[in-house]
Design a protein around this nucleic acid. Sequence first.
DNA 1: ATGCAATTGCAAATCGTTTGCAAAAAGAAA
DNA 2: TTTCTTTTTGCAAACGATTTGCAATTGCAT
Lengths: 140, 140
Amino acid sequence: MAGKKNQKPDYEKMLRKAGVRITRPRRVIVDILAGTDDHPDALEIFRRASAVDPGISLSTVYRTTKLLEGLGAIHRHAFEGGPSRFEQAQGEHHDHLIDLDTGDVIEFKSERIEQLQNEIAEALGYDIIHHRLELYGRKR
Amino acid sequence: MAGKKNQKPDYEKMLRKAGVRITRPRRVIVDILAGTDDHPDALEIFRRASAVDPGISLSTVYRTTKLLEGLGAIHRHAFEGGPSRFEQAQGEHHDHLIDLDTGDVIEFKSERIEQLQNEIAEALGYDIIHHRLELYGRKR
DNA sequence: ATGCAATTGCAAATCGTTTGCAAAAAGAAA
DNA sequence: TTTCTTTTTGCAAACGATTTGCAATTGCAT
């Protein structure tokens, strides 16, 4: 259920299409994001990028995540308490359960809940632009 | 549906019970929180408090909101993009729809959704400690 | 290869919030 | 009410996450 990302997204193609330059730092960062199913924050991406190319700066990580987010290529999640965490925008929409003890993120999906959300917004006279559903829990 | 807070909470009693001193700044801040049904942030509480007593500092607003949050007397909401906003912990649990154009917060409640959340957590082997459901939308 | 705009790294700035500290106020005791 | 001890305050400085200005570097169309 969780670690199911069908095919790696071709971020380089997305960058090219966006008309931005394909630089070494961007290639490294983008590869990291394309190659993981977890939800690293900027600092963690920076660490992983540094392991590949020690010259990459944290600023560039922030700039690149922001760029990719703007392209809709990745999603940013501001789970409570911590820094923003990122994940590929691949696959279907899902929500998150955050393990309060480990910080692990478990993805889940509920068609029923989505449906109910729409009904609620509808009843209130609103169109939902996006939503946030996060369950914070601990293992039973 | 929204502006329905049954009776003002007696925050002074809660403070006394918590064994902390009832100071003038606390009284002012607490009165503001007890007397509003909206979701002000720290700066807004500060502004309102300053109107009553110009001597109150922003630090004290932060300290007092944190104190009340610790007592379970108010809830803190970190809606996306902005600073934390607070509301009395009175009444039943509810979730929020945030008007992206105005910042207005509309409260709603869905027994069905809560139920589904529990089923999901259950299925994943987790106990939900708390959750966050926010709909971001604009008027239709 | 060349030239220029886009991108980088770095350091400094930003925003919301927290904290150290000395001065001020609460409230228990006398 | 005066005194005493303790908590609380205001202020300014520190904080963590993120953004930004700028000069140096780089991608890439020519």
